[in-house]
Amino acid sequence: MTSKNNSSNGSAPEGKPIVQELSSHEMAAQAVPTEIRLAHSREVLTVSFQSGDVFELSAEYLRVFSPSAEVQGHSAAERKLQFGKKMVLITEIEPVGNYAIKIMFSDGHKTGIYSWVYLYRLGAEHGELWPEYLAELEEAGKSR
């Protein structure tokens, strides 16, 4: 899981945990992917953006950072730590309007709507989000 062509846009996350935040028009317009490719293995989703950024997002990463209320709750305090998703796969992708995709996972989770902006953030901020997740797991005594 690497960002092949990561520009410097990936600023550090300010508010945690990341929930689907409203973005400015400019950001929304920029962050429209040109292609979303689900690998044959069903383990990796490659999202290419107009900006030239290409992010390879693993099914596990997408799953544990699902923007669904089932995961994020309705406030930071309600967020549920996801664990044991190492082997999860993406089973299906569905476009939602002009702005997002819905991702269905092999563990039955299918309520996450990933907007372009959110996918971009997951890609650009992987370097911060993933280690944080691992640290949280460790602290909670859970495993991937």
């Binding site: 317009a29 429209v32 992917p33 040109t34 292609e35 979303i36 490719r37 689900l38 690998a39 044959h40 999202v47 290419s48 107009q50 992708i93 476009p95 002009n98 995709i101 372009w116």
Partner: peptide, 11 residues
């Protein structure tokens, strides 16, 4: 062109 949505490719 910026408005056109992404191609979704399922390998």
């Amino acid at each position: 062109a910026g408005f056109a949505g992404p191609n979704i490719v399922i390998e």
